[in-house]
Amino acid sequence: MTTPYDVPYMERTRLYYEAQGYTTPYHWAHHDDTPFSQLTKSLPQSRVGLVTTAMPDTEQGRAERKLYSTPSRPVPDSMFTLGLSWHDTVTHTRDVGSFLPIEALLTIESEGGIGSLASHYQSVPTAYSQRQTIEEDAPAIVDLMNKDEVDVAILVPL
């Protein structure tokens, strides 16, 4: 039995791309300060938004990695994850509930643990360009969530 350790994903990624002949290593954003907002309502009164890195399993979602806003109901029975970085030699993404908690949140909503699940969830591409994320995708998600009257958000990267 090997001793558990936190997988050094940044180092593994750097070495993996280096082995593929990419000479400029990817630089993840790094910040000294992290923003923090307090909840303004209790969870049983809050509307919960949801963001995933998986794309909708539609003709368009499979063809183009970009921001999508998709109705939360009906619960999707598949999502498009091909081409994303996940551990495909040891697991799979056929169970949407293992990475997108729509069904769980609808149950919690029915039990009164949250006010409601947002009408739509967002798929955000894991873009190479941080500018794309900060200047285009993130502001668009805020607009979508504000229109949906979202109070708090759960973000689940694959």
Binding site: Y9, T34, Q38, V124, A138, V142, I154, P157
Partner: peptide
């Protein structure tokens, strides 16, 4: 995804990230 969390938080929407890449 972390950058999206930061942007939402700055916009007044509290967030929680659930993930498995601790170092990133």
């Amino acid at each position: 995804m972390s950058l999206v969390a930061r942007y939402l938080e700055n916009s007044g929407i509290p967030t929680v990230v659930v993930g498995s890449a601790l170092d990133i």
